[in-house]
């Protein structure tokens, strides 16, 4: 087990280096001088040089990358934004709770939708509700999240005034200038983003759960359970669902991890100042430290969720445990 964890950690470090190196390399393949963009006015070549020196972009890429690693390891700092010179650490720490709120809330919501609907559809294939569910899945998968978000916000926010059109409120305490804060305001503002975020995933998960449950229902051990005299409910709960959920757990872990790297579209539509928004702003302003910062955060999320899923999987599935 220790060997396993050690191997995983080593692999995580390799992955981390690869991801950040690729980010640096791609950034410098784009024929744009970040110093010119940050130089603040119609810059003469001398001024661009000064800014490049200030930002450190006048050094070779490998030097900059080494500096990035050194800062990360020794100072635990991701550096400072090119565009507004703010600390990348604090930008990410400020944005992370927003994205986490969105993603975890959305995941809970979409599982609440997808589990019953998927299981019902699997148990009653071709029933009216199954057909309705499958049609909605198609819509959910096909519709663009921005469209869904704008529609929800227009209908429930602007027209019916049931929910805020957009915006974010802190779960704990309020921020100066925002008249809202605390769990109720937070929830109230998150409902539509969660819905938007959940629609797409719920669609995927309904389909996935339906398929898995249907497959599991055909398993021999399910027939064994019935042959033992177990009731249908017992068969479902004890024998079908747990097995059908194994692949779902993996997917869920990865989807959450990736979304934590930035749920760009939903955050954009609802003006949520999360990591996705941060990343988009960073990319559109060629703000390397912000881009790398969000990439680092996302890869740490993916790597650690991977590990978490593995552990969880081993807990659920004894076949993995000893392997």
């Amino acid at each position: 087990m220790i060997r396993y964890i050690f191997r995983r950690l080593l692999w995580a470090i390799v992955l981390f280096l690869a991801v950040t190196i690729v980010t640096y390399v791609i950034f410098y393949l784009i024929p744009v001088d970040p110093a010119r963009l940050a130089a603040g006015r119609n810059p003469t070549p001398q001024e661009v040089k000064n800014v490049a020196h200030y930002l450190g972009t006048d050094k070779p890429v490998y030097y900059q990358y080494g500096l990035f690693l050194k800062r990360l390891v020794i100072d635990h700092s991701l550096g400072y934004s090119f565009a507004n010179r703010q600390s990348v650490n604090s930008a990410i720490f400020a944005a992370a709770p927003v994205t986490i709120s969105l993603v975890l809330g959305g995941a809970i919501l979409w599982m609440f939708i997808a589990l019953p609907v998927g299981i019902y559809s699997a148990l009653h294939p071709r029933s009216r509700l199954d057909r309705v569910a499958m049609a909605s899945v198609l819509v959910g998968i096909s519709a663009h999240p921005v469209w869904i978000g704008l529609m929800l916000s227009y209908i429930f926010g602007f027209r019916l005034e049931l929910f805020p059109i957009q915006g974010y409120c802190n779960l704990k305490g309020s921020i100066a200038g925002q008249s809202c804060g605390g769990p109720i305001d937070w929830l109230y503002h998150m409902v539509l983003p969660w819905l938007t975020f959940a629609v797409l995933y719920a669609a995927f998960y309904v389909r996935m759960i339906r398929t898995n449950v249907m497959e599991t229902l055909n398993e021999d051990y399910v027939r064994t359970a019935r042959a033992k005299g177990a009731s249908e409910i017992r068969v479902m709960v004890q024998h079908v669902i747990r097995n059908a959920m194994l692949p779902v757990v993996t997917m869920l872990g990865m989807d959450i991890a990736i979304a934590l790297g930035g749920a760009v579209l939903t955050e954009t539509v609802f003006g949520l100042p999360g990591l996705g928004k941060l990343a988009i702003t960073g990319i559109s302003t060629f703000d390397l430290p912000i881009i790398v910062g969000t990439v680092v955060f996302a890869s740490v999320m993916v790597i650690s969720f991977n590990l978490l899923v593995d552990i969880l999987y081993a807990w659920v599935d004894p076949r993995i445990r000893l392997a």
Binding site: D220, R223, T224, K228, A230, Q238, P318
Partner: peptide, 30 residues
């Protein structure tokens, strides 16, 4: 009747037992 007065065993023992429950649990369940 099932499992009590009439029992059944199947062709493929590899797939006829629930992989995520212990043997003891499956026997006890019966």
């Amino acid at each position: 009747y099932r499992g009590k007065r009439i029992s059944m065993i199947f062709q493929d023992p590899m797939t006829s037992l629930n992989p995520v429950h212990s043997i003891g649990r499956q026997l006890r369940e019966a």
